[in-house]
Design a protein around this nucleic acid. Structure first.
Length: 361
DNA sequence: TCTGGGGTCCTAGGACCC
DNA sequence: TCTGGGGTCCTAGGACCC
């Protein structure tokens, strides 16, 4: 028998708002909401993070900023300062990395650490997790919560159980009884749509899902059906991986007001193409496929894509094709809420690729 | 109540090739 | 005279995650 892996999931507590509190301690006793500009209740967009005081008003990540404003007019509403959060995040990741045998960044405020072999058992892992929490706090004055478990899935589910500055350890023999009472929509990978279908099948808790017939779920959900049953049983072999190449890069904007002004939309496509191209250049990547995304005022969303007969690194290819694609789908009248540009079919740049694009054009 | 912006993975149909 | 089977690429849409 293989010894169990020991995986930590580190999750910064209410990260964006906590960084803002650290920069400006006066915020600590106030409801702080980081997200889109509320514009006195007319603003678009959503709440990114709210501190615990704001949560007492019913404010949560993901709710419309206009609703958050109505719930708490006296709150401190801040627009996200991503450059700052990224700097803080990088420093914290550097601290975390040195404790791990294998290390994986999972977004700006989360990471997985595989510490198998570095600690002898889950008791020692728990002591290590406490040490990590303390060091992050001492050096960066940011609290985080940690889940310790035999795999990433359970570690992730565990880190959110006690917050803030919490630690939850789930030993291999306790995995099933840890998961079973949770509501089915709390399982990683089960969103609102799947949860609604599961509830109709009378599968309400993760324990119910663990006992369900994988064949039946495969009929209803396809390949993710049996995977959901495995997850409900706490089974997850996915490794902690250091880094993976991006498969696509893109930018999108929601307009302040829905618009059918061609010039405004085309200017936005120019700007989005330029931003996308800058990242592409920075990462020395070429692309083959350009995709335009259009969302109308009723939230109806369409994508339209074209693949080039060659690998390109040129901004003009993104702009020209994106505009052409947009012209092909837009009737010139419908009001547009969001426009997006994305490139995929990415390859690391090599010397010789350039010539092919030059021959074709 | 009115729904951001960055992504990933899966499905399904059609074109095309052997 | 009724029209295989497998594989890959492309496109569009949808669920999900942070």
């Amino acid at each position: 028998m293989e010894p169990p892996r020991i995986i930590l999931h580190v999750d910064m507590d209410y990260f964006f708002a906590q960084v803002e509190e650290r920069e400006n301690p006066e915020l600590k006793n106030k409801p702080v909401i980081v997200g889109a500009d509320p514009q006195e209740g007319r603003g678009r967009g959503i709440v990114n993070t709210a501190n615990y005081i704001a949560r007492e008003y019913g404010i949560r990540s993901g709710i419309p900023i206009s609703r958050a404003y109505r719930l708490c007019k006296e709150g401190v509403f801040l627009q996200p300062n991503f450059a700052l959060y990224e700097k803080v995040s990088e420093r914290i990741m550097k601290i975390l990395r040195k404790f791990a045998v294998k290390f994986e960044v999972a977004g700006i405020d989360e990471a997985y650490l595989d510490v198998t072999g570095k600690v002898k058992d889950f008791e020692e892992a728990a002591r290590l997790a406490e040490k990590i929490k303390q060091e992050v706090y001492d050096k960066e004055k940011i609290t985080c919560s940690i889940g310790v478990a035999p795999n990433k899935l359970v570690a992730k589910m565990a880190s959110g159980r006690k917050k803030p500055f919490g630690l939850t350890v789930v030993k291999p023999e306790d995995v099933k009884k840890f998961l079973a009472p949770l509501d089915v929509d709390e399982l990683y990978g089960v969103g609102p749509k799947s949860a609604a279908v599961l509830r109709q099948m009378n599968i309400k808790t993760v324990g119910d899902l663990a006992k369900a017939d994988p064949k039946l779920l495969q009929k209803v959900f396809g390949v993710i059906g049996p995977r959901m049953v495995a997850a409900a049983n706490g089974i997850d072999d996915s490794p902690v991986v250091e880094y993976e190449e991006a498969k696509s890069i893109g930018r999108e904007v929601t307009f302040n007001e829905d618009t059918n002004n061609r010039e405004i939309i085309l200017n936005a496509i120019d700007a989005l193409s330029k931003d996308t191209h800058e990242q592409l250049t920075a990462e020395k990547l070429t692309f083959k496929t350009i995709t335009v995304k259009v969302r109308y005022e009723n939230f109806e969303t369409h994508t339209h894509a074209r693949t080039l007969p060659f690998e390109s690194d040129r901004l003009s290819d993104i702009k020209d094709v994106a505009k052409k694609l947009f012209a092909e789908v837009w009737n010139g009248e419908r009001k547009v809420r969001l426009i997006g540009v994305r490139v995929s079919g990415l390859e690391k740049k090599t010397k010789k690729q350039k010539t092919l694009a030059d021959i074709v054009v």
